[in-house]
Write a protein that binds this DNA or RNA. Structure first.
Lengths: 156, 156
DNA sequence: TCATGTTAGTATCATTTTGATAGTTACTTA
DNA sequence: TAAGTAACTATCAAAATGATACTAACATGA
């Protein structure tokens, strides 16, 4: 899909860098603690060419950072940036959706260490405390439309 | 990417049907109220072949449902199922991430109708009330591994 | 009745992306 | 010196995507 970075829609902009399965699975594994090329490759069964490309994109986009962990031989690993770490809640929600609607055959469950209970993640508005989806809301389009706009919509 | 529906990971299972940009943008538009082929096509600038395929997958996967809205001429529209509606919080979170990390040039903002304030979505555990990411948690793998397992991992 | 318009697609084909496999670099360890 | 390890790159076939044109089944207006 073509690169659309000038839409005012932050969802579309996010998808520009994480809108594919491999990137999200790499992020999942990174959040689970993996950092190295071969760890990702073995965990995902991904072709090395693909893994190289995805890791490069995630790094360019600021979700991962390369860090030298050995000088001789020269070796680098990929560690999550703050932006990458902030993807955790999204993956937790995606997992929860899958647990509800794709769990035939058994799926893993997330347990809170402190309570020992299964986590039931919900999205709430930190301002009002209301659960997202239970109250009306609306979009506000920015006053200053991005210059060099590629006007994503209403072609034809 | 190959179809992996036997992983115990609910994230991977979800991505099997919504792990691409078009599906998520279609879902976004559906949640904004769009239902018809041409509405999606014009809003997204997507090729009709692609749109047909994506709508078919989303329908098969149970996120959308076809509904006849005219008998003569025969016309169908795509409406969200409960599973599709339950994707809203995920898209809100993805949007929030983009707003934080991809907002150069201005992006749309979500306003709560009641309070008039911008929504600040966070994921919390409904059981403990704790914000996700602030407390330790762990995964539990299901006792009954799925039969016909295609063992996604650790090849080589 | 004929031309035009609308909506939801399908057909076709070039381009791009992905996937599989083998090979490379720069080392370490036995 | 040989084998092993980690992080890749090169190559090429297969699959997915994108652009464009076209079709089906009607309605509408002249």
């Amino acid at each position: 899909m073509k690169n659309i970075s000038n839409t005012p829609c932050p969802i579309a902009r996010s998808l520009n860098c994480v809108g594919d399965t491999w990137s999200l699975l790499i992020l999942r594994d990174a959040l689970a603690g993996l950092t190295r090329f071969d760890q990702f490759r073995k965990s995902l069964g991904i072709a090395p060419t693909m893994l190289t490309r995805r890791l490069a994109t995630l790094t360019e986009e600021g979700l991962l950072e390369k860090q030298l962990y050995s000088e001789r031989p020269p070796r680098e690993e990929y560690v999550l940036t703050t932006a990458g770490q902030d993807f955790l809640p999204i993956l937790v929600m995606i997992g929860d959706w899958g647990r509800k609607y794709r769990s035939m055959g058994g799926v893993t469950r997330l347990i809170d260490d402190e309570s020992g209970q299964e986590i039931q993640p919900i999205v709430v508005d930190a301002v009002t405390g209301a659960t997202i989806g239970t109250r009306a809301m609306h979009l506000v389009i920015p006053e200053q439309p991005p210059m060099c706009s590629t006007s994503q919509s209403n072609n034809e």
